[in-house]
Design a protein around this nucleic acid. Sequence first.
DNA 1: GTTCTAGAAC
DNA 2: GTTCTAGAAC
Length: 782
Amino acid sequence: MGVPIFGTNLLGKEMEGEDCHQSSKEGRDDGGKGILVILVGAPGSGKTTFCDHVMKNAHRPWTRICQDTIANGKAGTKAQCLKSASEALKDGKSAFIDRCNLDREQRADFVKLGGSKVDVQAVVLDLPARLCISRSVKRTGHEGNLQGGKAAAVVNRMLQKKELPKLSEGFSRITFCQNETDVQGAVNMYSALGPLDNLSSGCFGQKNTDAKVQLGIMKFLKKVEVPDSRVSDPNSFADSIPKQEVEKDVSCLGTENSSIPVSNVDKNFTKGKDVMGGSSHGAVTANDIQTLAFPSISTADFQFNHENASDIIIEKVDEFLSKVENVRLVLVDLIPGSHMLSLVRAKAAQKHIDSKRFFTVAGDITRLYTESGFRCNVIANAANWRLRPGGGGVNAAIFSAAGQALEIATKKRAETLSPGSSVVVPLLPNSPLYEREGVTHVIHVLGPNMNPQRPNCLKNDYIKGCKILREAYSSLFESFASIERTQSIQKEGRWICASDSHDNPVDYSCSDQCPEGEQKVKRGDCFESERNKKYKALPLEPVLKDSECGNSNSHTVTSEVCEQKNKKATEGAKKVWQSWAQALYQIAMYPDQHKDNVLEKSDDIVVLHDLYPKAKRHLLVLSRLNGLDQLSDVQKEHVWLLRAMHSVGLRWAERLLSDDASLIFRLGYHSVPSMRQLHLHVISQDFNSPHLKNKKHWNSFTSAFFRDSVDVIDEVEKLGKAPVNDDDKLLSMELRCHRCRSAHPNIPRLKAHISNCQARFPSALLQNGRLVCAPSKEMGDS
DNA sequence: GTTCTAGAAC
DNA sequence: GTTCTAGAAC
């Protein structure tokens, strides 16, 4: 293997040499045929890499035909690929078809290129969905522009429609690769092929891939009458699944033994656009079943133990379904076969949870209807405590799918959410989620957090954690039930809107510009006022009157928000910040308006260059928490934030060190900052900057006025607050070198000195990670 | 936080 | 005369 072999191939190309012996493990059973290899695999499965690796070491001429680049580097058509493949084969080359080719139809035309002179083979990169998704999400510069957030949904959707190739399609050989070892084996095999070699016919490498098909669900879906068009009958749970796809999509269902009679389904599922679109009926009928789709709470970014979480899901689902009739619950996970889905599915079966009312589904929670036909009128969002978009995962997906209106509507209902609670936000009919998916409400829910870099980390306290997770699901389901109650009351004509609202429905698209006090429509009424204009003349029903805190739908959030608002009201007089001192605050609150300055943004943090750096490298890691202006405001509850800020600062320091290993960084806070909004300085210790001009500048970074981040974190953990050194004298002290401690009469002389001083740093700074330098560097040892 | 500038220090 | 600081204004 691996020795170049020359000869004359059947396509008439003159080759040199004479050694045409069997060169592959599988053996050559035909002499010198061209080979057309159709790669089969989802985005991220490694098709391009496979081709590259084979072609790098190949002993026969190969060409890679990629639809994403075939048109002068841009995406082209299947026809172009076919033409190009045909030409390459005629030219005596072998070819890889580098496109997904996940179903038979996509492959068929390429298979037809085979014949007496060309062998058509398939290499199936059947790697775990999780891996493909993870690769697709992470990659940049993908030829097909499939990367980042959208990749996960696309990969998932494609995988659900995957149809493994069969020899009967016309392949002479199919090589299945289900892990990296298989892939490497196939790469080796194809790269070793000389011009006259070929591989044996047949299927190779296929392990038992029979996905457990849930017969009950299959029966159910097969029983469902598939309508000719969605419009004609938008009511059924599975109504959008074309007949030929039903079987394939079933594999994404996690419920075993489900066998929902078609009659049940048709009657009980919420009536799509009829309900939501403001038809003359305008309300859910008594027989309509409300369906809540929810992600597993806390098990992703919050790192909650899956065993505990799945137990709690089952417990709470069981409890809720036994209490409330005419509702369905659907646990959704983006990744087929995810650990949580498997656990919950198994436990649900064990506990005999009603499989007609509880489902586990693999899919994108924001596209359940369009992609899988699941009509869920309410979806839950695993929100963050700030109720802000972003952060990735379900939260980012839902905020993105629902449009900006959700963000605004959410802010109208609650500013923040505490662990274990939830808040209902109705969607306006023009929300894409409403129009497309039939989702009328989003319930934000916050679970317990075990991730030390997220707020309110419970540090593996699972007694507390389980309690909060139970509360979160209880709150979520209660919120869901409250929607049901609300709609039932609407149906009976007792749901009323504030008088003005009918004529002046809130336009969320502009309401962020309206002062709060001028809002004419009561919160919570906006959506209903759109939907139920027929009830506009009826008097206000006290039972549904908004609380003062502005929450109509979920009692669970009311106390929470009131508490927060009261807390704010009772806060003592805070320092008044001059306008010039508000710049960082503005950036923290509205980072998108300062994109040019922002290096990194998350829900909690913004990173930016200090506008007037006092050293070669000087960044600010800015907290986005409103109300936390300076170190003296920090309390124990903010330790997570200090840690997160430190971690981000450290990461940036390391990044900057990779560009210039001579730098040394210190991370810390000014005891009394000039600018509002808690910010961590990440500053190199050269202090080589024209912006460092006076004594105050110098002393603010080199005296006890500067509080090391590591110390601040320790102290806040131990004492519940961060002691600050706010003595003005610190800033007017004599100018001393931060390394050798020598005194200097003025700034120019000091700067002249420090540009050369290489003394070892004072020992206090060398401890506890206060200084950060490149791994190989000794700090000031010369 | 910066800029400006009067006046002290050299 | 030049350099530097420090207080006021923003």
